[in-house]
């Protein structure tokens, strides 16, 4: 069967060191490097997965969390279908940063952007600073997807992306991509190099 291919631009936001790159690395390569270097600028990666009768090609912008790259974020979240905002469950501060990202997306992000909140490093629950319930309540209050993840132990990583796929508005019968505030189908030529 010839499945429809949809390109979904997703960006990862959040404080430095919370594990954005590790989440992407786990999702794309299914590997984990405990000594990963801080991202410089932003890193672009793609992965195509099947969702129901469609292929979803995630165009992932893994942004640097360091403050000096902060002002560049709009370049990456502009035109995104979804944003995964990551915090570290062992760092209360990173949860505050997350709230600032939510605000910024509200003000400057695409109107219908799907927001997913990932509480990473859930394998380190002994050092937990952010109670799961607090984060869940907050996520509900802004209608965001919420999961606690562990890139290290591969917990809930694929699930985040599946949830995003679920929330993306379905394509209408004609197969045209809907104009729901996110830019799809950047360049047809990019579809050639997928693994599927």
């Amino acid at each position: 069967i010839d499945m429809a291919l949809r390109e979904l631009k997703v960006c990862l936001l959040g404080d430095t060191g919370v594990g954005k790159s590790s989440i992407v690395w786990r999702f794309v390569e299914d590997s984990f490097d405990p000594n990963i270097n801080p991202t410089i600028g932003a890193s672009f990666m793609t992965k195509t997965v099947q969702y129901q009768n469609e292929l979803h090609k995630f165009l992932i912008w893994d942004t640097a969390g360091q403050e000096r790259f902060r002002a560049l974020a709009p370049m990456y979240y502009r035109g995104s279908a979804a944003a995964i905002i990551v915090y570290d469950i062992t760092k209360e501060e990173s949860f505050q940063t997350l709230k600032n990202w939510v605000k910024e997306l509200r003000q400057h992000g695409p109107p219908n952007i799907v927001v997913a909140i990932a509480g990473n490093k859930c394998d380190l629950s002994d050092a937990r600073e952010v109670p799961e319930k607090d984060a869940k309540d907050y996520a509900d209050s802004i209608h965001a997807i919420f999961v606690e993840t562990s890139a290290k132990n591969a917990i809930n990583i694929n699930e985040v992306f599946i949830e995003i796929s679920k929330r993306i508005p379905v394509v209408d019968a004609a197969g045209a991509t809907s104009g729901k505030g996110f830019k799809l189908g950047r360049q047809a030529s990019e579809s050639r190099r997928t693994c599927c």
């Binding site: 794309v28 270097n37 410089i40 600028g41 932003a42 893994d62």
Partner: peptide, 16 residues
């Protein structure tokens, strides 16, 4: 810059 960080080994980097 390129030699000092392994950050460039994942994906395609775009940075000022």
């Amino acid at each position: 810059l390129i030699g000092a960080s392994s950050a460039f080994q994942a994906g395609e980097i775009w940075t000022p």
